[in-house]
């Protein structure tokens, strides 16, 4: 399996490649939240559909900001296998397999928190392992942005307590053996 963590900082060769990673992180995270939002809409969980779409909107805003920054440096065009992700996909992607049709905002925000924390760690590993000064500087700025996102999600989580055990029980499930 291709999972597993390894520092990537030393492998990022220039700013154009760093920007490609930073941009892909935000674009793919936005797409992932849209997919989850669609799932919740299809499964009649409108509160969560709205929340996931809001999260997607934030990521899209960040993606646009990174694209604007890349006007100066250029952005590398990478094939999926050329991305140097430490895991099996981009670090800021909410885990699809954690989704459940009855999930609550607390679950969604836990997914988002884990994703933002992974993105923070990704840029942190670049800062700590690159020998290039400008890569370290820009990765440091991305790392600070991710730290702000982590704090934002943690703040939101204060509004939503963990649901009680049994949240996934459904007396009338959409699918059951008959």
């Amino acid at each position: 399996m291709s999972a597993g963590k390894s520092p990537v900082g030393a492998d990022i060769v220039d700013l154009a490649e760093l920007l490609a990673h930073a941009y892909a992180i935000e674009v793919e995270a936005a797409e992932r939240y849209r997919v989850l939002g669609d799932q919740m809409e299809v499964h009649n969980n409108p509160e969560l559909a709205g929340l996931f779409r809001e999260l997607a909107g934030h990521e899209e805003k960040h993606a646009a900001e990174i694209k604007a920054r890349a006007l100066k440096t250029g952005m590398a065009e990478l094939k999926p296998s050329e991305f140097k992700w430490p895991g099996t996909e981009g670090p800021e992607l909410a885990a699809l397999d954690d989704a459940h049709y009855q999930m609550t905002p607390w679950h969604a925000l836990q997914m988002a928190l884990a994703a933002e924390t992974r993105a923070f760690e990704f840029f942190n590993s670049i800062v700590e392992s690159t020998a290039e000064l400008d890569i370290r500087k820009w990765a440091g700025e991305f790392r600070e942005e991710e730290a702000e996102h982590v704090a934002l999600v943690e703040g939101l989580l204060e509004k939503y307590p963990e649901p009680e055990a049994g949240w996934s029980e459904d007396d009338d499930p959409p699918n059951m053996q008959e």
Binding site: Q39, E41, P80, S81, E89, L96, D97, M103
Partner: peptide, 30 residues
Amino acid sequence: SDFKSDLKPVWCPGCGDYHVLLSMTKALAE
């Protein structure tokens, strides 16, 4: 992303087939 259609999948949230769909789009781009 060019290989994804505009249709919203009706699979259950958490179904493994969502991952397969993603893997297929990545493979076709690759």
